[in-house]
Design a binder for these strands. Structure first.
Length: 478
RNA sequence: GUCCCCAUCGUCUAGCCCGGUUAGGACACCACCCUUUCACGGUGGGCACCGGGGUUCGAAUCCCCGUGGGGACGCCA
């Protein structure tokens, strides 16, 4: 096929991967004006996945041209969140690269150069102290009653956007727009395009909210005489309740919140990958390596997705259940270390081997790391609270004190070396008394834990040990 | 208001491109089973093609119009 035909084919066919002659270069370009949220993380993830899928380069670029709204704190949140989620960047702040600097606040000379090109070509002019991009075409004054002012319209041909997800989109850009503010700083549309050119970005993967901006960008690329990159506008994430897209103010929107709550980053990544993308079969819980190898543009769908924290919680639980023992204990310990509560302090002060046992009998029972401190509190203090409702119910039925006495007598000499040994002993006692395991369980559980839910009773006894178990039984019997 | 995008269970989605399925999976929900509490797990259940027109022997699938949802319209990004 002749080269121009191939190019034509690639540009006009929907959802077809671009030429692989040169290496894919994608970028994630957050602006540090607020906390890092779910939507940004998903955009970053799709870029990262595409780079890893194609063996390309993932660039991190900081869009901090709006000095009034930027902060170093937010910048660090971005670095931390990306790192926590495992999205390492190949070029960008901290790691460098051949197209730096990677913070727009440090690229002023580059923007001046590109502005000069536009000025020289007669495609930019000054008005009201700002510099405007000049569209080509006949001009006319029109009153815009939405904006309540007269605007200058330019008779222009629609910009054509060949989008990997949307297909061919046409949008008319018919008004000049500001590219340099009167304070001398360039605006988003300008720096975005200039940097994509200067950094040789091949694919722009971003939220659909930018689709309407893309006509501006296409006009700028044309003015610079550069072929625009391949665009892929991904669907937005809608807030869980109520109308509109998710924003940083919405419940559950912030990445650092999940980090603090002890969510597993691999679970969050898996969940996020499924918001707007699917491997097209029934797989949901997937190895990262599989997500990378399966990820592509045709798998991305076109409609917005609503965030569902229940599904995320379920994914997190599924990962938690499979975590190797050492890993689970380490993450549990890290979570306790961040708490700073008396219960957490007591847990951390306990013998590490004991802490480990407590965590491991709890692992199959909990849905999230954040449940652990409350779930295991009675292991680390004798001053644990008792659920009054549960106590009244259990103590008010049958002969709980008799069961307690029988258990106490038997446990004094029982084998505490394994769960099965304890189980056999309790079963033997129950059989001897003509009762069942259940007759002993509820009251014993109440005595040692103050509640009616928790790990297996035998595990409880074994981990607590004979002395503490007997002491707690005695306390309730008193 | 103008422009752009989108439309399958409550939610995430498969199926759509290239018309023929009992419209599949997962979360959530309900029931039952397992069980030593709580979970996990297992089995089963209820639950969807937005509406209307076309095209066709046949439409979730193709076309048009409605309607609904989302986005953009800044010297924010």
């Amino acid at each position: 096929m002749p080269c121009f035909l191939l190019t034509f084919y690639l540009l006009t066919s929907r959802k077809i991967s671009p030429p692989t002659m040169s290496q894919v270069r994608v970028r994630f370009a957050p602006s540090p004006t607020g906390f890092f949220h779910i939507g940004s993380a998903r955009t970053a993830l799709f870029n990262w996945l595409y780079a890893r899928h194609t063996g390309g380069v993932f660039v991190l670029r900081i869009e901090d041209t709006d000095q009034a709204r930027n902060s170093e704190e937010f910048l660090n949140v971005i670095y931390d969140s990306l790192t926590w989620l495992g999205m390492n960047w190949d070029e960008g702040p901290k790691v460098g690269g051949s197209y730096g600097p990677y913070r727009q606040s440090e690229r002023a000379p580059i923007y001046k150069d590109y502005l000069q090109k536009l000025l020289d070509a007669g495609r930019a002019y000054e008005k009201d102290g700002a510099i405007w991009f000049k569209l080509l075409g006949e001009r006319s004054e029109v009153y815009d009653d939405h904006r309540k002012k007269t605007v200058t319209k330019v008779a222009n041909a629609p910009a054509v956007i060949d989008d990997q997800i949307r297909g061919r989109v046409e949008r008319l850009e018919d008004e000049d727009f500001v590219i340099f503010r009167s304070d001398g700083n360039p605006v988003f549309h300008f720096v975005n395009v200039v940097d994509d050119i200067a950094m040789k970005i091949t694919h722009v993967i971003r939220g659909e909210d930018h689709l309407s901006n893309t006509s501006k960008h296409v006009e700028l690329f044309k003015a610079f005489g550069v072929q625009p990159p391949v665009f892929a506008h991904i669907p937005l994430i809608l807030k869980q309740n109520g109308p509109g897209k998710m924003s940083k103010r919405d419940q559950g929107a912030l990445i650092e919140e999940y980090q603090k709550r002890g969510y597993l980053p691999e679970a969050l990544v898996n969940f996020l990958s499924l918001l707007g993308w699917s491997p097209k079969d029934d797989r949901e819980k997937m190895l990262l390596a599989d997500i990378i190898s399966l990820f592509n543009f045709p798998g991305i769908n076109q409609s917005n997705a609503r965030f569902d924290d229940k599904k995320l919680a379920h994914m997190n639980m599924a990962y938690l259940l499979e975590l190797p023992a050492d890993d689970f204990v380490a993450r549990a310990r890290a979570y306790f270390e961040k708490q700073g509560t008396p219960v957490a302090a007591a847990a951390l002060a306990a013998d590490p081997a004991y802490f480990r046992e407590v965590m491991l009998i709890s692992q199959p029972k909990i849905k999230a790391i954040e449940e652990l401190p409350a779930y295991t509190a009675y292991f680390f203090t004798e001053d644990f609270s008792t659920d009054a409702k549960v106590r009244d119910k259990i103590m008010g039925k049958g002969e709980p004190k008799a069961r307690l006495a029988e258990l106490t007598e038997m446990l004094a000499t029982a084998d505490f070396s394994s769960d099965t040994a304890i189980e056999e002993a309790i079963k033997a006692l129950a059989t001897a008394k003509g009762l069942g395991f259940g007759d002993y369980q509820s009251v014993a559980r109440l005595a040692v834990s103050g509640t009616n839910v928790g790990p297996s009773l035998t595990g409880l006894f074994r981990v607590l040990g004979r002395e503490r178990t007997l002491a707690r039984l005695a306390k309730l019997a008193a």
